[in-house]
């Protein structure tokens, strides 16, 4: 093949691949093939989930090691104490602690005080986000356990996220920090009254923010789902703590920053509330 023909062949291949990619993007974007793509994704994730689950079980101690090493400052007391011991603890001891931690997390879910009237299913976290650009977790329950898209997911202390997609044996949770998250919440004001608002995920691991009508919410107060914003979530789920209140550009509202109650860095078990948003 002559160099000119070779170059033409290369360019044609690239153009064809770009065109196919753009076609896929367009079909996904406009929704024509969205259902098919979702089904293929769910099937694919179901197919690889047994292997993924096996490896995740084997690697949880390793994951904990990294979490302990790199999130040292943000872990809770027991994890901090555990991190201090990491240097001297041998592998056997570490695995034992990891197992104990798992058991504690499962048992702790039984002590959740909110949403006790809703049916639920507990699930292990089997994978961290697949993309560096989305805040998701994959859990080891799916439609065969009654899990459906949109269902809220909670940890011991409060709201974690909602189900983004579900296959027969796994589901992907959209975490509350993801930029696609919008949660209708109720703030407690300094006066004792309450005000509604919509919390928005910021991505980048940052806290959630909202614009809230004056008077300002009380700093340190807990924010709960209102159950009113399109009724995407049941009312009364604790979401986070008001950590910062600053004036917005207008005079009638404040910028409110809310720190999530649940630290997802070392989350191993969650509870899916079998509550579906009304159609």
């Amino acid at each position: 093949m002559s160099p000119a023909n070779r170059r033409a062949n290369q360019r044609i291949t690239l153009v064809m691949l770009i065109l196919v990619s753009l076609t896929l993007l367009t079909l996904d974007y406009h929704g024509e093939a969205n259902k098919t793509i979702t089904n293929i994704r769910n099937g694919f994730q179901s197919a690889i989930s047994p292997i993924q689950r096996g490896i995740a079980d084997a690697l949880h101690p390793v994951g904990n090691f990294f979490a302990g090493a790199f999130n040292y400052g943000s872990l809770e007391a027991q994890n901090t104490a555990l991190s201090r011991e990491l240097g001297k603890a041998d592998r056997q001891l570490y695995e034992q602690r990891a197992e104990e931690n798992q058991i504690r997390q499962v048992q702790a879910l039984d002590h959740i005080k909110f949403a006790s009237n809703l049916a639920s299913v507990d699930a292990p976290v089997i994978s961290q986000p697949s993309s560096n650009f989305e805040y998701t977790l994959e859990i080891g329950v799916g439609t065969s356990q009654g899990v459906g898209v949109g269902m809220p997911v909670v940890g011991l202390r409060g709201y974690v996220g909602s189900v983004l997609s579900a296959s027969s044996s796994t589901a992907v949770i959209l975490l509350e920090q993801d930029i696609r998250t919008h949660i209708g919440v109720r703030f407690t004001q300094k006066s004792g009254g309450s005000e509604l608002g919509v919390l928005n995920g910021q991505g980048d691991g940052r806290p959630l923010t909202a614009l809230v009508n004056l008077p300002a919410p009380k700093k340190g107060s807990i924010v709960y789902t209102s159950g009113l914003y399109g009724e995407l979530y049941p009312a009364g789920l604790p979401v986070g703590v008001v950590s910062k209140v600053s004036p917005a550009s207008g005079q009638l509202q404040d910028n409110v920053t809310v720190t999530p109650l649940v630290n997802v860095d070392n989350l191993q078990f969650v509870r899916v509330l079998l509550w579906e948003p009304p159609a």
């Binding site: 690239l14 993007l25 079909l27 994730q45 986000p129 989305e134």
Partner: peptide, 17 residues
């Protein structure tokens, strides 16, 4: 693209280019 819940085809496009 099958692993993530982001626009389908985006990785195909960027990877091939």
């Amino acid at each position: 693209d099958l692993l993530v819940n982001l626009p389908f085809g985006l990785s195909c496009l960027t990877f091939s280019i």
